[in-house]
């Protein structure tokens, strides 16, 4: 094997690992308990967290449904709507009553955010494809791409 091929393989492997690591780092940040950083609401207790209601407040007086983005997650989720205080709108909450995996909860967060956007603005905001220059294949860059890919499914929601 030529040296350049070997280097390319090593670089590709390193960036792949870094991308996964970036995603894992973001997840870890959400779960940390360092003072002043992170949310921690998702990890109060793993068993409780897996079943916890996750909610967005949608700035409309009523939410008649249906909610296709949530329905797409299947029959294991439970959905409720509640009037929010004052002029805040309506709370839309969903959960896995029997507990959801980390991936499933990530999908639930993303679906709640998409639902809120669709109701409030009529569209789900896109950001790609968009202009960019040369993306150097570096472990740091790949890690950040992993973070960005995971970001819609992460957070304190």
């Amino acid at each position: 094997m030529a040296l350049t091929d070997l280097l390319n393989r090593v670089t590709t492997r390193a960036t792949s690992v870094a991308s996964g690591a970036g995603s894992a780092v973001l997840t870890a940040v959400q779960h940390n308990r360092l003072p002043g950083i992170g949310g921690a609401s998702v990890t109060d207790d793993p068993a409780v967290s897996a079943r916890r209601w996750r909610a967005v407040t949608v700035c409309v007086p009523e939410l008649p449904g249906p909610f296709p983005e949530l329905d797409a997650l299947g029959p294991r989720i439970e959905v409720r709507t509640t009037p929010a205080p004052r002029d805040l709108g309506t709370e839309l909450a969903a959960r896995f009553p029997a507990g959801g995996s980390s991936d499933e909860i990530g999908e639930l967060r993303a679906a709640l955010r998409r639902t809120k956007q669709l109701i409030e603005t009529g569209e789900v905001l896109r950001v790609d494809p968009q202009p960019h220059g040369h993306r150097k294949k570096t472990p740091q860059g790949a890690a950040l791409e992993g973070v960005a890919q995971t970001a819609p499914r992460e957070g304190v929601l």
Binding site: I37, G38, R113, R126, A151, P152, E154, G155, L157
Partner: peptide, 18 residues
């Protein structure tokens, strides 16, 4: 704005809200 950042997980992690 609640809807203007497509990557809310990063700033929610840093600051508790995006």
């Amino acid at each position: 704005c609640d809807n203007g950042n497509p990557n809310p997980g990063i700033t929610e992690g840093l600051w508790g809200q995006s």
